[in-house]
Write a protein that binds this DNA or RNA. Structure first.
Length: 432
RNA sequence: GGCCCCAUCGUCUAAUGGUUAGGACAUCACCCUUUCACGGUGGUAAUCCGGGUUCGACUCCCGGUGGGGUCACCA
């Protein structure tokens, strides 16, 4: 009999899905897939006040986009009858009890408040658990007191719901953020009370902001959906997040999903928190952009630039960190950066040496055969003879009006014969 | 503050008692080149501090210091 690994990702839909959450999902996913086990997505939406459907949808769409496929999807709010069963049982066995509460004086006026809640009868003992990343962790639960596990029989809260669901769904490896370490003893107490086995834990180091505090919405975290909009590739995000806090022990940096699944190993996960480094993400994204097939590159680029610039796809791909930057290079359909309106200055034209000859040579080239390669062939010998800089600089400036651009042959090919010659002649006029 | 976790270049990390402490990103210099970009080569840069243990500590132990997490009728 194979001991199948079952992991889960259990986000609460109370905000946009970002790198902090996402890294937990990646590690849970990789651990499950590597073991040939099961990966469960459970949306923890029992807090009716804070949970929003749009956030749940955002999580699902982001996971889908990133290619983290799950075997089961559960909404915790739909499982309250199961939680209720266990709650009732705990009360019957006097392991939990109804507790009268005194309303705090400083309670916010519009805040939901129960006069009576269900508290767990804390046996006040030391508990310990095995953590795949940190080893044996021990804690005394005495100072936790009789903590609240439900607002009512129909309203379980976090600790009870998590323990019951993990048990019922067969989760045997709980992979979650380090911020849950202090919740673990409480949950173990509940497990013991309902007769559930304690899963293996793996508490991941936190993803940090540049100031080393926990990454959060209001603190530097960018939503996954936003990265998508900015033209980051899902494989790049996956790769970068996997490398944040984990490494394969080799010098490989670029991984596709299948390779990650193959090499992933929880025991090689770092213990300390890791700062989210946008610059390195950019580098990885660039690496994946470079590795894109021409067909896929063009397809991705059409989300950001007009189709007529697709012949430039390759050249563009060498100059951008993310696809949306392509917009800055070609503008909104009008010739922009690469193809600025030709307003060459005399100075930039360097006296326009050989502009006449360049025009003559190009006039002879068939307009139906106007490729960058053909243009280059036509001009190359002459340019080499006269000094390439002296011939090509004026041509570049005349065509683009700028010092910086792709090579002039490519520019000319995109502009077409008519427009190219028009611009060259315009430059000629300026010089006279 | 109590409890808990953590600590190698600026950043992500490798080295599980013996290495000139390695790699990547970033940065700097040079090369390539019709500009930018791409690419290539090389450089700068780290074991938090103090005690032990040991022939020998980044590595093991103890103590500091520092950072972080958590202390809800949120997850």
């Amino acid at each position: 009999m194979k001991n199948n690994v079952v992991t889960r990702f259990a986000p609460s839909p109370t905000g946009l899905f970002h790198a902090g959450n996402y890294r937990t999902a990646v590690f849970s996913y990789l651990a499950a897939r590597q073991a040939g086990g099961k990966f469960i997505l459970r949306i923890e939406d029992t807090d009716r006040e804070r949970s929003k459907k749009e956030y749940a949808d955002d999580i699902i769409e982001s996971l889908d986009w990133l290619g983290l496929d799950y075997d089961e999807l559960h909404y915790q709010s739909k499982r309250v009858s199961i939680h209720k069963k266990y709650l009732q049982q705990l009360i019957n066995e006097d392991k939990a009890y109804l507790s009268k509460e005194e309303k705090p004086a400083d309670l916010e006026p519009d805040k939901d408040w129960r006069e009576e809640v269900i508290r767990f009868r804390n046996p006040n003992k030391k508990v310990s658990f095995q953590d795949k990343i940190r080893g044996l962790v021990e804690m005394d639960t005495t100072d936790l007191g009789d903590f609240v596990i439900a607002k009512s029989l129909d309203e379980p809260i976090f600790h009870l719901a998590v323990v019951v669901d993990d048990f019922e769904l067969g989760v045997n490896e709980v992979i979650r953020g380090e911020d849950h370490i202090s919740n673990t003893p409480r949950q173990i107490l509940i497990q013991e009370a309902i007769g559930a086995p304690t899963p293996i834990y793996a508490h991941l180091p936190l993803v940090l902001s540049p100031d080393r505090s926990k990454l959060s919405k209001r603190h530097g975290a960018v939503a996954i959906a936003e990265y998508r909009k900015r033209g980051y590739l899902p494989e790049a995000i996956l790769n970068y997040m996997a490398l944040l806090g984990w490494n394969p022990g080799t010098e490989q940096e670029i991984f596709y999903k299948e390779e990650l699944i193959k090499s992933f190993d929880l025991s090689r996960v770092q213990k300390g928190g890791a700062i989210f480094d946008q610059i390195k993400l950019d580098w990885i994204n660039r690496e994946f952009i470079k590795r894109l097939s021409l067909a896929r590159l063009e397809e991705e680029l059409t989300r950001f630039i007009p189709e007529k610039f697709l012949p430039l796809a390759k050249i563009i791909s060498e100059r951008i960190n993310n696809l949306s930057e392509a917009k800055n290079l070609v503008g909104n359909g009008e010739f922009d950066f690469f193809f600025a309106p030709p307003e060459p200055t005399k100075e930039l034209l360097r006296e326009g040496k050989f502009l006449d000859e360049t025009i003559d040579l190009l006039e002879k080239l068939d307009g139906g055969d106007w490729s960058a390669e053909k243009i280059k062939n036509k001009l190359w010998d002459f340019a080499t003879e006269q000094g390439r800089a002296d011939v090509l600089w004026p041509m570049r400036v005349a065509l683009t009006g700028r010092e910086k651009s792709p090579d002039p042959f490519t520019v000319a090919s995109i502009l077409g014969k008519k427009e190219s010659l028009q611009r060259l002649k315009h430059a000629q006029k300026i010089l006279n």
